[in-house]
Write a protein that binds this DNA or RNA. Sequence first.
DNA 1: CTGTGTTTCGCAATCGGTTACTTTCATTAA
DNA 2: TTAATGAAAGTAACCGATTGCGAAACACAG
Lengths: 343, 343
Amino acid sequence: MGLEKDITIYDIADKLGVSPSTVSRALKNHTSIGSATRKKILAAAHDLGYRANTFASNLRRQRTNTLGIMVHELRSSFITSVLSGIENIAAETNYDLIITHSSENAAKEAANAENLFHKRVDGLIASLSFDTKDLNHFRKFFDKGLPVIFFDRVFEQGEGTKVIIDNYRAGYNATSHLIEQGCRRIAHITSSLSRNVYSERFRGYSAALRENNIPYEDNLLVVDSLSEEAAVRSANAILAISPAVDAVFITNDMCAAVVMQVIKEAGLRIPEDIAIIGFNNDMIGKVTNPKLSTIDYPGFQIGQVAARQIIHHLQGITDINMTNTIIINSELVIRGSSLKKQT
Amino acid sequence: MGLEKDITIYDIADKLGVSPSTVSRALKNHTSIGSATRKKILAAAHDLGYRANTFASNLRRQRTNTLGIMVHELRSSFITSVLSGIENIAAETNYDLIITHSSENAAKEAANAENLFHKRVDGLIASLSFDTKDLNHFRKFFDKGLPVIFFDRVFEQGEGTKVIIDNYRAGYNATSHLIEQGCRRIAHITSSLSRNVYSERFRGYSAALRENNIPYEDNLLVVDSLSEEAAVRSANAILAISPAVDAVFITNDMCAAVVMQVIKEAGLRIPEDIAIIGFNNDMIGKVTNPKLSTIDYPGFQIGQVAARQIIHHLQGITDINMTNTIIINSELVIRGSSLKKQT
DNA sequence: CTGTGTTTCGCAATCGGTTACTTTCATTAA
DNA sequence: TTAATGAAAGTAACCGATTGCGAAACACAG
């Protein structure tokens, strides 16, 4: 096998009879290199199959050109879309990504933060785990002036820039839509209200009820984990409510799909007896019967925005500290599961 | 903000009055350091909040402790499971990952390979894109003796180690199951037969038919892209076949779910009129009505095995070149969509 | 007390780029 | 003609960890 040593800027310098520094500068389009020299060097680099040694560069420049990504779960289509968006921008700008996930565990999240800090990433893009209580494990980043961007699960009042949707409005729109369809006893299946995404959606839900003079009832609120088993539990809880529920707003499509199934198995019709609206606009909502109304949560776009933002900051184009929160647009997607009136 | 410079082995050495080399060796448990000295150094490192500089180390050792991952698509639950499995092992062994995706594009795949090569990853784990025709873009890795492991989409005869399931057997089992259920006109919706996974499953399908004296018919084979739109097309193609089809083996659960929907909308019953079996065991199969029979494709496990294999090779524990192919177990999961007989 | 082995460390070169500071020339103003 | 100005390129000191080579220190047998 061809174990020839890699060629370096010194090799190029030797071949052309110039100094390594000239080669280095030419390679990165530094201004103080004559265009003739630059051209020669670029050509030679190409001919010799030169590949830059990132470590040498990182070591010297004290930067890594790497972003740390922290997510709470990899196996989620929303998260995957976000990653896809981040990767899209990172690839363009030649940044690497190190992706970690916390499995919804605050301790593991802290360990990941520590690890990424040691790896000296230039910045962080993170969505908090389910049971994260504070941002202490990001302290080192803040203190060192390293940019941190949160998305999805965030502390709205905390440090760092956030890229989120207007969860309040999303919850409000979903609920208003159900009310317009004639529903009055609207249940809400969601996860812990201590997480911003869920508490805000709940605020929107409550506000919509209030504005339509529908009294809020505590027993219409079901808080559980949104997992598959939890979905079955929640659905049964909903079915047991009396007087009967005529609509459910569920903050997760996968969960909603399972709930729909339980409801149908119980002999009720969707949307005639119970209208359903989910959240995320996952693929799964397109194959349920009827198809699932939902809120589109544009992960790809969120990932792009977050990545672009942090990279521009690192490139000195913008200052991230000037931006506290970026709101991405999200839309109500109406399909069969909530459409009682023909329009 | 606290921009104190990082502390290095030199700082530790100064503080303790030993040489940097001693510190370096102590930190990596080199044998030739007295245990008293080692203990002192470890303690000092901890006190001072020392964090190793990977670049300096990489530069010197000419290794990166990073694996390159190449997938054809990020937004797939199978792929995500694999990534999860890889991450699981990599985290344990302190390897970083750089994840790239080709969007099913051979040219982008080649560019990614080139990029990872320049980034000097220690090894590669890859699933080929849809239209990859050869392994030329991996040549540099092979030539340099860098380990490459393929999974899922592979060239079974090509260079490199492969981690796959027995796709032939999976196709055979799925089809045999349908035959046992009394089906005789079994259609097969799949993707390009030039990809190993699909051609092997097709071989299994054909073999099962042959063994049961069911003649193979060309028009029962539908090759398309498995996307959502393709699924609708394929389903309609199936419905147009005469004499009517009584079962379909589809090599992708998402596609199968959509096909089921089209079939039901056409007024046919599943499984009574048409039995369905998918592939992958995605979440989506659990919320269709009826639930989808499928082949479990254990992504997490595949990821773990691939990662473990390549890392052990890098650590010198095993030699990857001794292993050509690793077959992971996959199982038939029977649910409602294919169960015509009560057992 | 000398010689042979071990164990434990230190010296110093090295990995490949980057960049502050100089030097070298050529052009231009005085 | 000469000094000033600026563009182009070179010098060399880093960045922090690793490691081959060899020296010092100590143990122990003869």
